[in-house]
């Protein structure tokens, strides 16, 4: 199940997951559960980003647009049509996937930095359009004001809970889903094709792999998951606006967490989120705005150091250390 993982790593992963599973029984303070939910959520988002970008080696800085669009779809279907966000979420994810195919079929012939810059441009176009459109063919988008999910009270149907714990478990379920999907990807033909395309696009093409087709499949899956994440975000905060949910900050967060953790691996992005989000949280809560921007200085430094010294992400040296420990244990 874990590919090349050593027994020690497997053990740690299972222990880690069990810890996450019982977490709400150990810590009961809603603020802590809230923070844990956000960490798990960002891990999910980074892993969704990783699904295409990590395996294909293309850097998208426009992924937030998928989360934003799907979030809007979910909220609008709920407020306008009275459809449960659980269903809206799927529709949102699907629409994000369709959108990603439209964008991807145009941009995937661009490589490296060119691809990155176009993803930024697409996301910015969408964000500016949403911010300045109050009403689109009768759909009340409400521009930059954002949409509010009306309070219904504790209801599974409406995806609203008074308690934080259900949100936490939903996020954890999503995370588990993306982990399983990534493992399946690694084992599937699609995964091999993506790696082939990443290594040598022309070579892959010569072997009869259609790079655009497989890139698009991966992208649409990634966009689908990112969209689900966006819908979750909208339900969790019961508020969505273009600036936050489609802005470049969110895209940069997703990318940086995956890259620092280790893109193109199952657990790397999750590791990245579990390291970086707490840094942001701790600097913010302990310094309370006295050292403005400190956590971003730390982010930037960690990013630069990772690119320079661990281009495959910090999961690589971590695994090496673990391997040494288990090697020693065997002796």
């Amino acid at each position: 199940m874990f590919g090349t993982a050593t027994p020690l790593e497997r053990g740690l992963i299972i222990i880690g997951f069990l810890c996450l599973l019982v977490l709400p029984f150990v810590i009961t303070n809603p603020y802590h559960i809230h923070t844990a939910t956000m960490i798990v959520y960002f891990a999910f988002m980074a892993a969704s980003w990783n699904f295409v970008c990590g395996y294909l080696g293309q850097l998208s800085l426009g992924h937030s647009v998928f989360s934003g669009v799907a979030g809007y779809v979910t909220v609008l279907m709920f407020t306008q049509l009275g459809i449960s966000p659980w269903i809206g979420m799927l529709f949102g994810g699907l629409l994000a996937a369709v959108l990603s195919v439209a964008i991807g079929s145009l941009t995937f012939r661009l490589k490296g930095p060119y691809f990155t810059l176009t993803t930024i441009a697409f996301a910015e176009i969408m964000r500016i359009w949403f911010e300045n459109t109050d009403n689109f063919i009768g759909i009340p988008l409400k521009g930059s004001e954002g949409l509010v999910v009306p309070l219904v009270g504790d209801s599974w149907w409406a995806f609203q809970f008074n308690d934080k714990t259900p949100y936490y478990y939903i996020a954890l379920g999503l995370l588990l889903m993306i982990v399983l999907a990534t493992i399946m990807l690694e084992k599937s033909k699609l995964g091999y094709y993506l790696k082939a395309i990443r290594g040598d696009q022309d070579g892959a093409e010569a072997l009869g792999i259609n790079p655009t087709k497989y890139s698009l499949i991966a992208l649409s899956i990634s966009a689908f998951f990112t969209g689900i994440g966006g819908a979750f975000f909208a339900q969790f905060f019961r508020y969505i606006n273009p600036e936050r949910n489609m802005g470049i900050d969110m895209s940069i967060d997703m990318a940086i967490m995956a890259i620092i953790g280790g893109q193109g691996t199952v657990l790397g992005p999750i590791l990245g989120a579990f390291i970086l989000h707490p840094i942001a949280e701790i600097t913010r809560t302990t310094l309370g705005g006295s050292f403005l921007g400190l956590h971003l200085v730390i982010y930037g430094t960690v990013l630069a150091l990772t690119v320079l010294y661990f281009p495959q992400g910090i999961i690589v040296p971590l695994r090496r250390i673990l391997a040494r420990i288990s090697g020693r244990a065997k002796k």
């Binding site: 303070n29 809603p30 603020y31 802590h32 809230h34 923070t35 956000m38 954002g146 975000f233 905060f237 508020y239 606006n241 936050r244 900050d249 949280e281 913010r284 809560t285 309370g288 705005g289």
Partner: peptide, 23 residues
């Protein structure tokens, strides 16, 4: 007075509100 930073972001604001109330 306990000051907390929203960074002008709605989600951070909600998280900080939880913290102010709970912790």
């Amino acid at each position: 007075l306990v000051f907390s930073d929203s960074q002008s972001k709605p989600d951070i604001g909600v998280s900080e509100t939880e913290r102010l109330i709970q912790r």
